[in-house]
Design a protein around this nucleic acid. Structure first.
Lengths: 170, 170
DNA sequence: TCATTATAGTTAGCTCGCTAACCATGTCAA
DNA sequence: TTGACATGGTTAGCGAGCTAACTATAATGA
């Protein structure tokens, strides 16, 4: 996970001009576009967070519930969950702590391997998803509806290209 | 600021199908596109973070330095900085704590108003920017270079539309 | 077999978000 | 002029990210 600044005040061309004077030739448009893209990414993520928060969740916890529901036996392990949601095992430990405290998941001992735990979605966890998801899907649909299928495809193409380009920061 | 899951494992159409069975009609493409867009936003942000981290900064601290450098007297106040970077005053207090500890900014008493402090960019802070920015600008340029000016414009258009659409989550 | 290595998970300590509560200090109006 | 309100900033406490260090258990192989 990452933190992304909201950047309420993007630099205007004048200010960037002063920076150019100090730092030499700069593609002002490229910088402004880049910052705008980051900011909108944050905005979208925050829109989702705000929605989930109304259901007492945040992206991390919500995603864990979804990953569990995907499993046939509603069960997984902390390290698998960490891997699949792209967070560290330490972070997953604490996400699970919170979810277990709220009764949405349960830790189950593995009798074959004393190191492992299984994490199972509880009835309460399933009930939570059953409240969130039927609210979530139509909203995503409504949101994405502002773009045609072709436009969405195009957008994704461009973003994937940018992602390739972001190797420039390596 | 927001937290954005990396979602290493997006749902495939099959899994989404099972969710559809439980939750009814869902525009699978819309959901996949939405999650992909969020994920790429995170990826881009993390690329920037990784770059800044190599200079001992993160987006929050870096942005404060930039905001200060924009000022004619290299000086601002915590609440202005908070406002402009879109974080709470509490968060700004701690960003400033860190920057002051590292000697990149300095707190100056305001003799007219005992409540205020001024925050000034120090020589070390300016030196830090003088190392980071000449490394940053060419990389942004290289990254954005994967898209033509027209494509960038189009991309931004689409994202702005999506941002409008994200009111669906309200 | 038993010492070494690998794996699963947690804990500790850091960053950087947030809100709410809390000090100061200033301001304003009765 | 002084009591009430407003403002600027910090503190406290929480969430969720990280890395590094640690514990416990399992697996391996000399």
């Amino acid at each position: 996970m990452s933190v992304m600044l909201q950047l309420k005040e993007l630099p205007d061309a004048l200010i960037l001009g002063r920076f150019v004077k100090r730092y030499g030739e700069v593609d002002v448009d490229a910088v402004l576009h880049f910052l705008s893209i980051l900011r909108i990414g944050t905005d979208l993520s925050e829109a989702l967070d705000g929605f989930l928060a109304r259901h007492g969740l945040l992206q991390g916890r919500w995603w864990v519930l979804i990953l569990l529901m995907r499993e046939d036996d509603l069960t997984s392990t902390p390290s698998q969950l960490a891997e699949k949601s792209g967070v560290s095992r330490a972070t997953m430990t604490r996400l699970i702590d919170g979810l277990a405290r709220d009764g949405l998941v349960k830790r189950l001992d593995d009798r074959n391997d004393g190191r492992r735990y299984a994490i199972r979605l509880t009835a309460a966890g399933q009930a939570k998803l059953d409240k969130v998801m039927p609210d979530y899907y139509p909203r995503v649909q409504r949101m994405m509806g502002v773009l045609s299928a072709a436009q969405r495809e195009q957008l994704l193409q461009y973003l994937l290209l940018l992602k390739e380009g972001s190797r420039a920061f390596q």
